[in-house]
Design a protein around this nucleic acid. Structure first.
Lengths: 138, 138
DNA sequence: CATTACCCTACAAAGTTGGTAGACTTTGCA
DNA sequence: TGCAAAGTCTACCAACTTTGTAGGGTAATG
């Protein structure tokens, strides 16, 4: 299951995408509109900024804003960033790979093969869906 | 990611499937062959028994054994039992459904729609793979 | 100089993970 | 009848993660 952090990130990003033309948006505005704890959201937005998805401006008229087009931000990227690996096992993860101690040979391990299928099916969706798919026809 | 519990369950079930003709198998035998803590495995096997997947016999010559054919035990069933929901959000879970507080209408919530796709893609694999797929050609 | 993001520490309740320990019950067999 | 083997049950635990709350100080900007 996705963590609340990840869900909140999607909500916040949707809000920013919908208000993109307005420029910088206050943390507080997002928090109260999306019903997220201000302090918790602060951390989330900071992570998104460090990942190069958001920009920020301090001082009066400051806030957060998207620095990419919504079409360029895949759901997979957000999920990996805030939720961790998409794969079910470390040994089939593309971004967080770790050898599994149990299986002697990944090429012939049936578990491995099936988990790769699951991963690919999942990625087939979230690598091809972007923030813009999230805010369509609302 | 799948928990160790779930991974252990797959290992144990594979072992039991491979040794099906021998009848009851000791916890200890599975534990040492698959390198799992004996006591932890005990809990896992008990859960599998309560779920109607395994049977057990006490006393001398006792142990655990499959009470279903490997082809009848889907990976989805094991994962749901030991790992919890397969869906990424409670509001798209078939077996653990819960309404999400944030979205006003599931039919028009884009998040909801995308997460349903992810779920269906995942289920497409694990509902159609069984224990017998795990032990093939070893 | 007010505003706003940034950054840090600390706390905390609740839940999950990956176990450990020990007593109890049932069973098979001699 | 009695013992040993084996699963069953209850309890506990340490470490970690999650989902925050609270507060304060710093830096940039208009």
């Amino acid at each position: 299951m996705l963590s609340k952090k990840t869900k909140y990130a999607f909500h916040a990003l949707s809000y920013l995408a919908e208000n993109q033309e307005r420029g910088a948006v206050l943390i507080q505005e997002i928090a109260s509109n999306k019903n997220i704890s201000h302090k918790f959201l602060e951390n989330i937005l900071l992570e998104l900024k460090k990942a190069g998805i958001l920009g920020s401006k301090k001082g009066k008229g400051g806030g957060y804003y998207l620095i990419k087009k919504p079409e360029e931000i895949t759901l997979a990227k957000i999920i990996r960033l805030l939720n961790g690996p998409i794969a079910w096992l470390p040994c089939v993860s593309l971004n967080y790979y770790e050898k599994c101690s149990d299986c002697p040979d990944e090429a012939t391990c049936n578990m491995h093969i099936i988990m790769c299928q699951v991963r690919d099916q999942t990625l087939g969706v979230v690598e091809n869906k972007t923030l813009s798919d999230l805010i369509k026809q609302k």
